[in-house]
Amino acid sequence: MKKLARLFILCTLAGILATTGCSSKGKIKDGEAGAAGTPPLSGESGIGGSGMPGAGGLDAGGRGGYAGGIPSERVIYFDFDRSEIRPTTQGILEQHAGYLSANRVPLRLEGHADERGSREYNLALGERRAEAVKQVLIIMGVPDSLITTLSYGEERPVDRGQNETAWQLNRRVELIYP
């Protein structure tokens, strides 16, 4: 997963620089190529708001907007049995990366899965989701040492319903500032 997340981010960065797609070679599997090959977010001024992302990571100190407090959106959602970061949620992670880099506070990423399937596999799935978020934050310039991951698998649903609406809410990573 580390490789996948890295590849995804590299593709995204490459996309920002060159606005070309990222061909899915190597380790990308069926069904994941879509996420990895998705064009980068438009409208944003690049990761961290500086002109040249990727040159030396993130210079979040320059983003005064994050000095105010912890970003209010603290949940990242995922597709069924997947742990790729959706392009639409990348903006949330950019805010957190800015806040973390500016304030150097610890962050715990708690991964969760919906109830379908085996409990132990779901524990691993929650961990993989948390790890995917962690890798994105690291590439956005957050020091590795600030981030821990923990999976609760399917143990802590936010919605106990047995339908897709509930399951979608439960497939998530929560960003916890201890």
Partner: peptide, 17 residues
């Protein structure tokens, strides 16, 4: 398997499996 409270290097209470 369960979860334990541990003290992180930075001094806050963390949890680990």
């Amino acid at each position: 398997v369960t979860y334990d409270v541990v003290i992180a290097p930075q001094g806050y209470r963390d949890k680990q499996m």
